[in-house]
Amino acid sequence: MTDLFTPRRRTLSLGGAICGAFLCTAMAAISPAHAAESGTSASTSEAAPSTPLNDFRSQLGDVRKNLEGVNARIEEKAKTIESLSKPDAAKQQVEELQALISQTLGLVADNGQIARLGALALGYARSKQEQMRNDTKFTPSERQALQKRWDQNVAEMVKATDELAKASSEFTQLLKTVQTRGDYAAEVLEVENADEMVRVVRNLAGDVRGASEGLRLFIRSLTPPES
């Protein structure tokens, strides 16, 4: 799985290009063998069919774990900031904190992968709901049971996507707090008051801890829809 919390950077080099070329060539070369092997592995994974709903559930579970991990790292960062005494170190810590929150916000942003999967899954659940309403194949009691399950599913999907939107809003507020305090600290530094700058950044640690506590409670409430 991709590490979504590695700092984003431009990584482009001749070595990378050559490495990519070799990898792609190798993949192309082994693909027939891989295809032959996948015939057996596909049959073992048939137990959990890939549907938009299953994909979303699994991704949302991963996102929740990642959010818990990143929240712990935000708290660590707040601790580090409290022990600062030099303006340069303070500036660097604020920038690192911004990068950390940005990576997390990228996960839950409205054009992020999880939001897109959520929209797909909700669309799928709604189409199944509609299909069951118009069904003529099953008996009335079977149709009613399926309708009830899909109604419940759609309601849970709507709740989950609303929670994601709330997470996006919470992390946006946190990033805005950090960037505004960072900007203020930079202004203070510009008027050459290093002690005051360090004090401003240390106070930021308190804000971040408060937000982190709120986020922890929120993350616990972030629940993937049931199967």
Partner: peptide, 9 residues
């Protein structure tokens, strides 16, 4: 091909 294989961020 190499560029498409790169970890471009």
């Amino acid at each position: 091909v190499g560029l498409t294989g790169c970890d471009w961020h």
